[in-house]
Computed example of a mutant assay.
Amino acid sequence: MAINLSKGQKVDLTKTNPGLTNIIVGLGWDTNKYDGRNDFDLDSSVFLLNGSGKCNSEADFIFYNNTSGSNGAVVHTGDNRTGEGDGDDEQVNIELTKVSSSIEKIAFSITIHDADSRGQNFGQVNNSYVRIVNADTQEELIRYDLGEDFSIETAVVVGELYRHNNEWKFNAIGSGYQGGLGALVSDFGLN
């Protein structure tokens, strides 16, 4: 049975699930059907971070145009341009034991493509979540539902995996940003 997290909660991932090596990080969302002016295109991105909380290079920014990082240990499965349907809208596969030792954190975000020009923000998005699934058994281990706490934000860091005493843990962050993907890329040390 999955552990449901609240904003700011941290939980052991590998310590409480011995032998866990392959996970799927699923991200999902729905958009406000009453907006109607423009189509929404939300995107998930992954930032592989060093001990300073920064990417070592552009190769550590994983998204629909750079789908693999850390020598194939982290793989984005592709862009869902509509968000239609049930279940995960986008997924990231991670082989925890193969993640480079220089990577201390793996941050997951959701951004709205062309949010400013389309007049869109996370106040028009609901049912956003991140979940971690054991890739071998398909068992959902962790789930964090973001809630409806956002208004003018155009990007959200939903959570992060991080190393602690040779184990992986998950932190439910739920931190919104204005400035979309560009603000996140800059915060994580890239141009």
Rank of each mutant, 00 (worst) to 15 (best):
K105T: 14
N166I: 04
R143M: 11
G72M: 06
N50L: 12
T154W: 00
S100D: 15
L48Y: 03
F122N: 00
S68E: 08
D88P: 01
L48H: 06
E139T: 00
H76L: 15
E160L: 11
N93E: 10
N166F: 09
I106R: 14
K105Q: 12
R163G: 00
D88Y: 00
G119R: 01
G123A: 04
T111S: 12
A73C: 04
S100W: 10
N166S: 10
V133G: 05
F108I: 13
E95Q: 12
H76D: 13
V99W: 05
H164Y: 11
Y162T: 00
I106P: 08
E90Y: 04
T154F: 01
G53W: 01
D145S: 00
L48Q: 07
F63T: 02
A135R: 11
I94S: 10
K54Y: 14
G78N: 05
N134H: 00
N134Q: 04
D60E: 01
I103C: 09
A59I: 14
L96D: 11
V99F: 06
G119Q: 01
G69P: 06
G85M: 06
S151T: 05
I112C: 08
N66M: 05
L49H: 13
D88F: 01
T67F: 11
Q138R: 13
V157K: 02
R143I: 12
G69M: 05
D116T: 11
E139K: 08
R118N: 07
I103Q: 06
D136M: 05
V92W: 03
D149L: 08
N56F: 06
L161F: 00
D60T: 00
N80L: 13
L49T: 13
S70H: 09
G69Y: 07
S68K: 12
A59N: 15
I142H: 02
A155H: 00
Q91M: 14
R163M: 02
E167H: 08
V92I: 06
I112E: 07
F61Y: 11
I112D: 08
D149Q: 07
E58R: 15
G69C: 05
R81S: 14
T154S: 03
L49A: 11
Y64L: 06
E140V: 15
S70D: 10
G123L: 02
E153L: 01
Y129V: 12
D88N: 06
C55G: 07
E139G: 09
N50Q: 15
K105A: 12
S100V: 09
Q138S: 15
S57K: 10
Y144V: 03
T77N: 10
E95T: 04
E167L: 03
N93A: 12
S57R: 11
S117N: 09
K98A: 10
L146D: 01
D86P: 05
D60Q: 04
I106W: 13
T111C: 13
S128Q: 15
S100I: 13
N127Y: 02
V75M: 13
D114H: 08
V156W: 05
F63P: 00
G51T: 15
L141I: 05
G87C: 03
N56E: 06
E148N: 14
K98R: 10
E84D: 14
R81K: 15
D79I: 14
G147L: 04
E95H: 07
